[in-house]
Amino acid sequence: MGFATLAVIALAGLLGPLLALPRRWHLPVVLGELAAGVVLGPSAVGFLHASDPTFGFLADIGFALVMFVAGAHVPMRDPNLRAGLRTGTLRALAVGAVAVGPALAVADGFGTGHAALYAVLMASSSAALVLPVVDALGLGGPQVLGLLPQVAVADALCIVALPLVIDPDHAARAALGALAVLGCAGALFLVLRRLERGGYQRRLHRLSQERQFALELRISLVILFALAALAVRTHVSIMLAGFSFGLVVAAVGEPRRLAKQLFALTEGFLGPLFFIWLGASLDLRELGRHPSFVLLGVCLGAGAVAVHALMRVSGQPVGLGVLAAAQLGVPVAAAALGTQLHLLAPGEPSALMLGALLTIAAAIAAGSVTAARS
């Protein structure tokens, strides 16, 4: 992998902003980046190869940063989030319970044996997708206050559950690894909160700003990579490391300068590179050779939308329920892990991504309709 390939990847990453440019479409930037990876990968052109070790390592760094930014965007200090925490948590747990039935039916119908994985996928939500849509559409009110913690709780729980269900034979090992990562994140929160209350964070911020040292960014990257190393060593997805550290930073309070630096690093290069790598790792020709997996993707997407919409019985509007069904981080991680560990059948990772794209389309439509009605 050389600079010419990096130039092509950077150019391909521009497709994301181009597709997301029309505001009325409400399309997430990652859709264009995934599409660019699919076109440049084995599905079409064959220029990019996800098996390249340098490409894969850079993509892992991007994945860790993407999940860190997603966790940092969860409004942990927002009193509105805490106000609806009980209702949102109960709805997230109810969605998970309801998803078991459809997941069993889909796994049995397609003979994959991945019922637990499908249940986690159907129950998952993506805070990184839902929160920007809520802000862009100007949605508010008591029902939205219950939606935000529901999405945050579902996102966090499904991220923890994914490594346990995707490789059941090593679930105990993954559980211990997840506890190790979460325990380190909890200890990190206590340390950072103590430093913040003692005024050390403000001193560091002033010094970094005055001397142009970028100390906050450097220290954050050290912690993130250390947690990612622990996750890899304990056989847990780096997704958990990035997301848990993001939640810690959100709970303590992220300096604006650090937020801008991480945004530039992640959204400008490493994030798009990861999604392009993911698209390049999906061979959509496998769907043509296994057409039943097209139906699998449709069933997964429809199942996720249906189980979230069923929260209408709890008083949640159908539009907000469908909006909560938007998923990306967990299916992306499932496809990436399944591909790396050879745990999924040929064409199954593409089916997972197809299901995720269907939930995004449904969520955007439901959010737009809800905004128009309100």
Rank of each mutant, 00 (worst) to 15 (best):
G16N: 05
G16I: 02
L18S: 10
P28G: 12
V29L: 14
E33H: 05
A44Q: 07
F47Y: 11
S51R: 11
S51L: 03
P53L: 05
F57S: 14
D60Q: 15
V69E: 13
T87R: 15
L90C: 12
V100T: 11
L104H: 05
V106W: 00
F110T: 12
Y118E: 04
Y118H: 05
V120I: 12
S124I: 00
S126R: 04
A128F: 08
L131R: 10
V134C: 07
A136F: 09
Q143D: 15
P149F: 03
Q150V: 06
V151R: 01
A152L: 12
L164S: 05
H170S: 14
A175T: 05
G186F: 13
F189D: 06
G198W: 03
L204I: 14
H205S: 05
S208T: 15
S208N: 10
S208Y: 07
F213P: 04
L217E: 04
A231M: 08
F245L: 15
R285T: 08
R289T: 11
H290E: 13
S292I: 15
G301L: 07
H308R: 01
A309V: 02
V313Q: 15
P317K: 12
G319A: 10
L320F: 01
G321C: 03
A325P: 00
L328G: 01
A336Y: 06
L337S: 09
A351M: 01
L354S: 09
